[in-house]
Write a protein that binds this DNA or RNA. Sequence first.
DNA 1: CGGCACAATTCACATAAGTTTGCTTTACCA
DNA 2: TGGTAAAGCAAACTTATGTGAATTGTGCCG
Lengths: 221, 221
Amino acid sequence: MTQEMQQATSHVRTFRRHEFLARADERQNCVLRIEEGWAAQYRLVPDGRRQIITLFLPGDYCEPQWLLQGRATLPIVALTRVRARALPHARIQARAPHEEDSMTRVLDAMLVLLRNREKWIFNLGRMTATERLCNLLCELYARLQARNRVVQDRCAMPLTQYDLADIVGISPVHVNRVLQTLRGDGLLDLKGRWMQVRDLAALQRLGDVATEPGPGMPRAA
Amino acid sequence: MTQEMQQATSHVRTFRRHEFLARADERQNCVLRIEEGWAAQYRLVPDGRRQIITLFLPGDYCEPQWLLQGRATLPIVALTRVRARALPHARIQARAPHEEDSMTRVLDAMLVLLRNREKWIFNLGRMTATERLCNLLCELYARLQARNRVVQDRCAMPLTQYDLADIVGISPVHVNRVLQTLRGDGLLDLKGRWMQVRDLAALQRLGDVATEPGPGMPRAA
DNA sequence: CGGCACAATTCACATAAGTTTGCTTTACCA
DNA sequence: TGGTAAAGCAAACTTATGTGAATTGTGCCG
């Protein structure tokens, strides 16, 4: 396959752990679809603090915005070894020649992103460490299940406790504490890159505390 | 102007404080543009916790998603008396008969929303109470300035300390503590629905701690 | 003008979560 | 296969922030 043909069609790229899929403000002429491995979009403070904004799992598209802006906003790093397919913008646009159709697809993706972020603003702002972690683990479990990556009650869990900490906005030590408790209570087991969910219902109860507001006044107390 | 004509064109609605501009999952056939007053989109926990997800100031459009989904997802409540113009979807779509053009407008709005939420996930996850508050106040100041609502170093600040708490994800009491400190340090003055920014630079320094990541590895410590 | 409700303030105390450090286990590479 | 670095784990201690409750302003409506 010639260089030109690779440009015109999609091609596969692989990244080692800690390698960048994209750097901040880098020009992008492709959208990446993760085929294997996990990646994360994050933001740093010079003093070392890191907050992961978005997690990308197998099957996910990294950043539909690229299509619109032609550039990444935040860096994306591989949390594990990653295999991803790079889809040139031109090719995506060509696939749906009817303008409106391809637009709709992008819009839907953005609505989903928007909803996810809504949820995480809520989590980070008003949930305890335990609630956030349970919520995250449930979400991951569900996302993997949707992609047929859950066997029995087990799924891959390649995130380190440092990664988890940087997602739920707490310290790694505290992540460990909470996980110990959850394990002790028989809710789940995190061992060697794998997660076994022993009591999904309980986990969801802990993590999904939010409800739609009733007819009352907000903060009427 | 007859009732029918008002339906076909835009019309103005007013809301008292604590009144809903929209309830969760309510059908919407208009997009609201705030003309006067402040409103907020939020999410509750039954036990009383509230997290504000988005703040709407004069000039803001509430929820471009409505255009796409035809319904609100989260409730929106008036934090002050609000005057808003309701723009029927049909009218908006008609204004830009060239499909692509109106789409682009909506997409841009969503990109902005997405960026804002990125920022707040970061703030809530990794910034201290003081940093978050400074950041918020700077943001509000800038937004009001962009709308020509800052005179000298003063602008309106109709949010109660409870509201502020529910935005930055801390307790009202702690909001008060931080505000006292900022006032004591001569950075700003919050008094009677008005904010006077005495040292914008210092405020920004406290609030805008984040930087683009250098060439190093994230979390390489 | 006076009262009433809500907002701001303050203080004493409680606690969740951060920090530091050291040890142990695991995973990975030569 | 063993050595090395990263990850997990644990305990002691510190700190930021939360809670509860009481006090003082402040604006608003009759």
